Structure formats: structure tokens, C-alpha cells
Amino acid sequence: MMDDLKTLRDAWGEADAPSQSAHAQARAALLARAAGQGHAPRTARRRLRLPKIGVRLVAIGALAAAITAGVTVVQTSGGTDKAGRPRSALPGIPAGPVANAEQALDRAATAADARPFTPPRPDQWIYTELRIRTSAKPAGGVTGGPYKTYIRRHWERADGKKSAQIVNGQVKVLDGFSETIPPNDYPSLAALPTDPDALLRWVYAQNGGKPGTQGQYEVAFQTLNVILRENLLPPRTEGAIFRAMKKLPGVTLVDNAADAAGRPAIALGRTTEGWLHEEVLLDPKSYAYLGERAISIKNHTFRGAGDNPNLDAGFIKKGVLQNLTIRTAAEIVSEPGQRTS
């Protein structure tokens, strides 16, 4: 069987990290959005970056070519038996294609529940690696190139008391607990509710916003995606996230989805602010989390997030990809700097 992660690594070469200006603009846009929904930033906590337009990520090449009009049924079976009937690729999951987002999320939750998992020891580290295609321009929405690719590598000690990242080509360990919204330390993640209704109540409480509104549902979908993207989760927690997504209004199955290497993927998403479709990408056979993407579904005029928003204003055409992030690693390692167990 082809190693999908190796394919992604071979397809995209090494690249530079994003600029400090890009980080600052993305953070400003996110905080402004959070404040607009009635949730005051907490001084003792930092908010993990949600997959927002301010991050200004873009996918081109194989993925752009894969997005076409028409209807494609996503195949998720393990082939056929001698009688030509679909054969399931995973025990306990029906064979054949998924017809809608609810079916896909049900199967993803069932697959997550059955995944073998050994919890990390407190002294071990959780390593995550993201490969991101982004505009080379410093701020604003994605309206066109030039583009570049960068890799983000992060280590979090399982007890939540230390983290590490690459700084100037070297692994830098950061001491002290850094509380985030949503959390990214393993003890907090392992303690999240595994009942989907209780998990959604927790998400709503973290983000604030007016109950029962599209804005609340948008941020809830983004928050659940961030937790999937940034962490290695206990199986029951991951299953609960998929079941919670299923309960959010407006989540749909996307036709003709593909990942960065042009391979088929299941895309499940919902519309943000009426013009941006934000999606979670799943492997069509294992239902494992692959990453995320976002695409404009309407023409959109935006303002920048800096001191002079008019200078960073722009126009985004319908069909322009805003975000492609592929998670290429999520595993337990022995020490910071280690990339494989």
C-alpha cells in the first residue's frame, strides 16, 4: 500500500517559515473576529489560530485542477467481493460510497473509536507537522500569487508543561504551561467531554457569541477542526469531535474533493460569512483526518486587519482557494526535535 504521507513529502519540497508580519496580521484578524462575536480575549490565555481568511493560505496545482463542476460520489469501500458486491475497508463500517456529510461523519467517528492507541507517558512528546501553501504577500485575503510553501513543526510534552518549535533552524524548548483556547495540552484534551452534545456545549462556552446563530456555528466548526489539526487525540475524543460536527447545522459533503497530491479525499464543510466554504479533509478509505481547505464560493470584497485596513483591502473572485493545510505527522516521540518514533 502506498505511503500517503511520503507522497505528500515527495510532492512538496522544503520551504521557508511565514514572516512575522504574516503572523501578526493573522492574529489581529482572529482577535478582531472573536471580539465582534461578543467574546472578550482572555489575558491569561492565547487563542490557537483558527483556519480563517486572515491566515491567507492558498492551494494551487493539482488541487486547483481537481475542483470542477459536477457530482462525484466518494468511494470508500475496500473493493468488491467475488460476487461484485462492495467490500468494506474497515470492520464495522458499511461498504460503498457515502451519500452525505452525516454518513461520512458517522463512519469517521466509528473508525476513530476503533483506532488502536496507547496514551503517551507524561515525559513523552507529541509531534505534529503541517505543510502549508501560502501567499507570499504579507497580509489580506488571497487574490492571487506569488505563493510559497512552508512546514510548521511543533512538539508538546504530554504533561502540558513544555513545548518546542524550530527557531532559526534549531529546536527551541519553551518552559512553562501556556493555556490556549482551544487547549492543545494532552491532559486537557483527554478530559474533554466524549458525549457530542456536552462537547458542543463546552465549545460554545469557550467561544461565546450569540446562541443559535450562524456565527456561533461557524466558530464551533472551526474550533473542532483546530483541535483535530493541532493534536494527537484519544480515540473517543476524536470520535466525539466528528459526532459533534454532525450536529452542527449546514455541514455538507463536497463534490470532487482532492488533497495536495491530487488524490481523492472526503471534504466536509460549511459556509462562513456567506462567501467562504471551510472544509475538513478525510481519507476516503480510513476516514483519518488529512487536513483542511477553504475556497471562496462568492465574489467578496474585504478590508485588511492592520492599522489602516483600507490599504490592505482587496477583491476575491469566486472559486479562489484560500487555504490548504495538510497534516503530515501526528505521533508520540521521546524528545523534542524527534520526528518519528
Rank of each mutant, 00 (worst) to 15 (best):
Q165H: 02
P182G: 02
G141N: 08
A139W: 01
P183S: 07
A99G: 15
I181G: 05
A111H: 01
G140T: 04
I132R: 02
G160I: 06
G145N: 02
A111L: 00
N184F: 10
Y150R: 00
T149G: 06
A164P: 00
G176C: 14
E156L: 13
V173K: 04
N100T: 03
A95Q: 06
Q103W: 10
W155G: 03
H154C: 03
D175N: 15
G176M: 14
A112C: 07
V167D: 03
T128R: 03
T134G: 09
P97K: 12
Q103H: 11
Q165W: 01
D159Q: 11
L130W: 05
G140C: 00
S163A: 14
T180N: 07
Q124I: 11
N168R: 11
L105C: 04
E156K: 13
A99V: 15
F117W: 05
D123S: 12
P182E: 02
D106T: 15
P146C: 00
R133D: 07
A101C: 08
K161S: 15
P120G: 12
R157L: 06
I126K: 01
H154L: 08
T149R: 08
R133K: 12
N184D: 15
D123T: 14
V142P: 02
I93Y: 13
A158T: 02
A95Y: 05
T180M: 08
A112F: 04
P122V: 09
V98M: 06
L130Y: 03
L189K: 00
A99W: 14
A99C: 14
P97A: 15
Y147A: 10
Y186E: 08
V167L: 09
A112N: 05
